[in-house]
Simulated scan of single mutants.
Amino acid sequence: MRTRKLYLGPLTDNRRWDMVTIRPDDVFVVSPPKCGTTWMQTIVALLLSGDPDIETELSVKMPWVDIRVREMAEVAERLEAMTHRRSMKSHTPMDGLPLDNSAMYLCVFRHPLDAHFSYRTHVRNIPMSWFDIWYPEDDPDGVTFRRFLDGGAEGFDGDAMPLAHILRHYTAAKAVADRPNVALFHYADMKRDLAGTFAKVADLLGISHSAAVMERLVQAATFDNMKQNADRYAPSGGKGFMKSDSDFFHSGTNGKWHGKLTGAELAAHDAMMDAHLSPEDRAWLEFGSDSENARA
């Protein structure tokens, strides 16, 4: 029997998965925060429904099982009562999740520095003050980036998403990527070819829609449409959880760190990336399938 790693932080607890009975056609969306999780969940919701106007209600219909703010018994009961094909979200690395041979796992990644700077914006938009320890609003000494580099992959640190946690996500997913039910996606590729991403996910899930329907589904999942309709597409959108649903979709751009880090900070980041990843893996984790052109 496969032994799962423990990921227990102030916000998440992967032991909660013990209360979920996995079904053969379940769809897991697995990624570090701010790497395209909500985007991939939306793509899955649109493909499963075939309806570009579907009310996704991701936090209820496609729940984040790891998060401790909801009673797990209630989440498990809601999942068990679902009669449609289910999808669930996790920010736990693959080595901490139940790995079923029939369920589908869609693992989404983004350049770690883009994810980090997006997370900086995100923590200012949510009512969880413990993030202030890692992400002080006034940070002239660069404490936030030092903690990004120094933090561990597990425990309290993990929920604050340091680089070590992102690297653990990637190496854990890569370790099982040879399975037919595990697929890796990159945010940059999704931006470059959203229609191609839809086609790939549809194929993995065994779903088929007409070309006209697919075109409408793709349009619904564009950044501009999701931001303009943030109360529908943001997690817990329209419920007042975040200060601004629209700001959850902040910019959707790459290269957020340009001009914001010192040479020493970039060198420290590069050293850590090179120490843990091969040149090929680093290139993919940063830039996706178009890594050569992106580095140029």
Rank of each mutant, 00 (worst) to 15 (best):
E57A: 09
R23G: 07
M40I: 10
E80S: 15
V60Y: 01
L58A: 08
E71T: 11
T83I: 11
W64D: 02
H84T: 14
A103K: 14
T83R: 12
T38L: 01
V30K: 13
M128Y: 00
I126F: 03
M94T: 13
G50R: 09
L46D: 02
M62N: 10
S87P: 12
D66N: 05
D66A: 03
F28S: 03
V75F: 09
F131A: 04
H91C: 10
D114C: 10
A45F: 05
W39H: 04
L106S: 01
T56K: 06
W130D: 01
W130L: 02
M104L: 15
G50H: 11
T56N: 05
V69M: 11
P33W: 10
M94V: 14
D95R: 12
V108I: 15
I54P: 04
T38R: 00
S87E: 09
T38D: 01
P136W: 10
D114P: 08
S87M: 15
P136D: 13
I43S: 03
L48T: 11
D18H: 00
A103L: 13
T12C: 02
N14G: 02
A73C: 00
L8M: 05
C107G: 02
T37K: 10
D139H: 03
M128L: 03
D138Y: 01
D25T: 15
R85N: 13
P127E: 06
R23D: 11
A115Y: 07
E137M: 13
I43L: 03
T21P: 06
A45Y: 00
T21Q: 14
V27P: 14
S59E: 02
E137F: 05
K34A: 11
R110G: 04
L11F: 05
I43N: 01
R124P: 04
H122L: 14
A45L: 07
L106F: 09
R70K: 08
L79Y: 09
I54G: 04
G36W: 01
H84W: 14
L58N: 00
N14S: 10
P52W: 12
L79R: 11
L46S: 01
R68G: 03
P136M: 10
H84D: 15
M19Y: 04
M128N: 06
E74S: 12
R23N: 07
P136I: 10
R86W: 13
V108P: 05
E57Y: 01
I43T: 03
W64G: 04
A115H: 07
V143K: 13
W39N: 03
T12K: 07
E137Q: 05
